[in-house]
């Protein structure tokens, strides 16, 4: 069967239309499926321009590959120009194409009343102090000495808690008259540890796990007191204060937030807040407080420990230099 002579022309047109449709509507639809967010991510106009330009260049190369291709491509155009598809079609075509071009020019140049959008970099590193890259959360991996000290305190029933928890713990102790203050944390690792403690022989591994439970308990309390209003109980950036901020508080349960950064970065962000961001991250829209003004380093680290735990995420491991 002989190929129809108009095939190459229509392939070019169809390719242009398909690629345009894919970038304009396909990517936003797919983005919703990938991100799981209730809104699509549209392709910015400049990127769209680049895509279309590349497509046109590719098609141009294809069409001008040799004389034969070019002739094939030009065949229907030349027929059209000669009026072989009908004089009315030619007149209509010669009117519609300039009208479309005019509409595009008008649409591009007319000023539009919409918030000037600003691109934003979520994890800017331009002013991230390199020394923070290797910072370790001191509560994530307690040393043997710390574990031993904890066992000693536990044996004497003199484990200290952060002052913010004291009122509630005292209230609880007065009412329930527990054998041991750590019974306030009725989780499996803590119960195992208390069982061993009562039995007289403590395994350092269970003590380590119990100490972790205590740190998490304190970290969650500090999170509830300080971060929950914006980031929410769910750590999904949907706290009761969140709706008022145009730049929504970060959703820690999202892939691509706290999972993609090292602990030292999280600590630096919590400490310096919105005002500590570089220009490319639009610090003027960020409601993140400068927590170093109100929370001690220990409190900030405990919160970070609890934050990763609540979000069921782990921080990125620093690259070894």
């Amino acid at each position: 069967m002989k190929k129809p002579l108009t095939l190459r022309f229509w392939t070019v047109v169809l390719t242009l239309v398909l690629i345009y449709a894919l970038v304009k509507w396909g990517i936003p639809v797919l983005s919703r499926e990938i991100t799981g967010m209730p809104f699509p991510l549209t392709v910015p106009g400049t990127l769209m321009f680049i895509y279309m330009l590349l497509t046109i260049i590719a098609l141009f190369l294809l069409v001008t590959f040799n004389e034969e291709h070019l002739a094939e491509f030009l065949y229907p155009i030349q027929r059209f120009l000669r009026g072989e598809y009908g004089r009315a079609t030619r007149t209509l075509g010669l009117l519609i194409v300039p009208a479309l071009i005019g509409w595009q020019v008008y649409d591009v140049t007319i000023p539009k009343v919409q918030q000037p959008s600003s691109l934003r970099i979520q994890h800017p590193s331009s002013n991230f102090p390199k020394k923070n890259e290797d910072l370790k959360n001191p509560f994530a991996n307690p040393s043997d000495a710390e574990v031993d000290a904890f066992i000693e305190q536990a044996q004497a029933n003199e484990v200290g808690f952060i002052p913010q928890l004291r009122a509630d713990l005292d209230n609880w102790a007065e009412y329930t008259e527990p054998d041991h203050m750590l019974e306030a944390i009725p989780t499996a690792p803590m119960r195992a540890f208390l069982g061993e403690l009562a039995g007289g022989s403590v395994n350092p591994d269970s003590a380590r796990a119990a100490l972790m439970e205590k740190h998490l308990f304190e970290g969650r309390a500090l999170y509830s007191m300080n971060c929950r209003p914006c980031h929410g109980d769910s750590v999904a950036g949907d706290g009761p204060m969140a709706d008022g901020f145009k730049l929504r508080p970060i959703n820690f349960t999202d892939n691509g937030t706290i999972e993609t950064i090292v602990e030292g970065y999280t600590f630096w962000r919590v400490s310096n807040g919105g005002p500590g961001l570089p220009t490319e991250a639009t610090p003027w829209d960020s409601a993140m407080p400068v927590w170093k003004l109100n929370l001690s380093e220990e409190e900030r680290w405990k919160i970070i420990l609890a934050e990763y735990d609540l979000a069921q995420k782990t921080p990125r491991i620093p690259e070894s230099h």
Partner: peptide, 22 residues
């Protein structure tokens, strides 16, 4: 009890009396 400690107690209190630290 473990879930309550983790998710509820900081507002509702260890005793459920609504007197947690937050």
């Amino acid at each position: 009890a473990a879930i309550y400690l983790r998710r509820c107690s900081f507002c509702h209190g260890l005793l459920g009396d609504g007197n947690g630290p937050a």
